[in-house]
């Protein structure tokens, strides 16, 4: 890693303390919890992801889907309007479809459950992109273009013709910091932690709020859990 620091690393100690992962179990299993009740669809997490990871134009490791039919448009539920978002990045599956199909094992699961991509081994066949049920992988179709060179130096640039995707900011986890998107969320809709610790915040939230996994029926067992929005009981007729 170079001597360059992340924009967040350069912040005052108090801000850094805000991003501490804190105590974890001996054998952490990283999960991210996304609270749909709290998400306001502002795309802050997507934008900071681009600068943190130096993601070129046209590519997004992280995006905000609007539940329903149109972008930032309410949908009708039981005669009333509702509006929710589904922030979507790599789901870091326990049983990933992408790692299974890679002919050269360029994408693989780490011991702690994170799914990684080795840009130096990738041959660019895009089979993982076909296999992923979430559409979160990004291919370097052309030479990277950037509006400004973010160049934080935290993450090595990916070569032409290879695949890249969300790494759960693995370079920050090594430093004991939560991923950038978690740190930057103004609604605190993203929570990062250790699933192997039954008393961790993520474990409690998943238990208490009925955390669900996206496309659970496909059996990929993601390490990203969504907390469903609460029903606005008070507004019911």
């Amino acid at each position: 890693m170079s001597d360059k620091v992340s924009p967040i690393e350069a912040l005052p100690p108090a801000s850094r303390a805000y991003g501490e992962i804190g105590a974890v179990s001996a054998d952490p299993r990283w999960v991210m919890v996304v609270d749909q009740e709290r998400c306001i669809g502002c795309w802050s997490c997507c934008v900071i992801c681009k600068s943190e990871n130096d993601v070129p134009d046209g590519m997004w490791w992280n995006r905000i889907n609007t539940v329903g039919d149109g972008l930032d448009t309410p949908y009708e539920e039981q005669g009333r309007l509702a509006m929710h978002w589904l922030p979507l990045a790599c789901q870091h599956c326990e049983n990933p479809a992408c790692t299974r199909v890679c002919p050269v094992s360029a994408t693989y699961s780490r011991e702690d459950g994170l799914v990684m991509q080795d840009s130096q081994r990738c041959i660019g066949c895009r089979y993982c992109l076909v296999a992923c049920p979430y559409g979160v992988r990004q291919f370097n179709w052309g030479r990277p273009e950037r509006p400004v060179p973010f160049d934080t130096g935290m993450v090595a640039p990916r070569p032409l013709g290879t695949m890249e995707k969300c790494t759960m900011c693995v370079h920050r986890i090594t430093d004991g910091q939560v991923p950038s998107c978690v740190w930057s969320c103004p609604g605190q809709a993203r929570i990062f932690g250790d699933l192997n610790d039954p008393d961790s915040k993520v474990s409690r939230l998943i238990r208490d709020r009925g955390g669900y996994q996206l496309l659970e029926e496909r059996g990929t067992d993601p390490h990203v859990y969504y907390l469903p929005p609460r029903r606005k009981r008070g507004l019911e007729p």
Partner: peptide, 17 residues
């Protein structure tokens, strides 16, 4: 292939500027 597997807008990032 030509439909997003998570069918919510805005869909999948195209990948080029």
């Amino acid at each position: 292939l030509t439909f997003a597997t998570v069918p919510y807008a805005p869909g999948v990032a195209i990948g080029t500027p």
